[in-house]
Design a protein around this nucleic acid. Sequence first.
DNA 1: CTAAACCCTATAGTAGCTTTAAGGTCAAGA
DNA 2: TCTTGACCTTAAAGCTACTATAGGGTTTAG
Lengths: 166, 166
Amino acid sequence: MRIGEAALAAGCQTETIRYYERAGLLPKAGRTDGNYRQYSASDIERLVFIRHARSLDMTLDEIRALLDVRDAPENNCSTVNAVIDEHIDHITERIQVLEVLRRQLQDLRGRCQQAQAAKDCGILHQLGHSEPASAPKPTQRARTRVRNERTARHVALASRASRKSR
Amino acid sequence: MRIGEAALAAGCQTETIRYYERAGLLPKAGRTDGNYRQYSASDIERLVFIRHARSLDMTLDEIRALLDVRDAPENNCSTVNAVIDEHIDHITERIQVLEVLRRQLQDLRGRCQQAQAAKDCGILHQLGHSEPASAPKPTQRARTRVRNERTARHVALASRASRKSR
DNA sequence: CTAAACCCTATAGTAGCTTTAAGGTCAAGA
DNA sequence: TCTTGACCTTAAAGCTACTATAGGGTTTAG
């Protein structure tokens, strides 16, 4: 099985597979005479495992931890539970932060009901001084997460945009 | 006011302010004889505006749009409403995706109740074949967003880690 | 024999910063 | 006066998890 077929089976791009190989999640693939990568059924299983974990939004580091356990079938799997539990916690926390954000934004939005001169816009005023809306200043931790999570959206938007242009 | 004081006033790092200047959100700062950047009260206001918007998780592009309106006080502010409304939509969508993810993860977590041999672990098995948990495969769009959002967490963890080592 | 479809490597780009390296400026204290 | 240390400067690299691009080589169908 060559890389294109493997990508199809796993629902990802060929370049992503090469990336996983470079990142050490997949072993260096065997090669044909023409230097094409070759994949066995168990290689595909490993790749599918990774993609499933990614579809649950786990990081490559978390997946590495799961793969390590998977690679040692007699060992104890308690790490697995820990990884999943922590991952659930992260997501839960993130949902809470987003809900606070949404409330703040809705409050902010309420300050300008119709199109008017910018100098009279309640939203611009509110952003200009003191705290935005009635919001308690987000903690440093929350803020960091939010800021970075947002990085996400850019990337998402960027990739959506580039998809469009394909 | 020099850059350090400005950073303190806005609750960010000095390097972040330089970054905003490079990114064109802040005008090129004036300089002292010793080539230090100098900030006026209105420069600080602009910076605070940016930071407030960022604390609401807006992108620099969205903020640029708000600043443009702010810079033309007689112009119509309807762009502002549009930016905020769209931003609220993004966040709402993201919350929904995360809630689906959380349900999937909780389902997955239920498949292994105690530490056991890795080869018997229900979580590893589930990740290994077919679809994870009972989850409908996330749409391409959702998946992209999620994957990228997660990028975020790495960054968050990274910056938390580096904070620790300071 | 050639064109299309596939594969290869290496490099750069994405958002919004943060970190690092290698310095220059300036005020206070010995 | 000299130096220590706190502050500032620029430029470049790093972070995640890819994706895209450039510039090639291989294989296979017609």
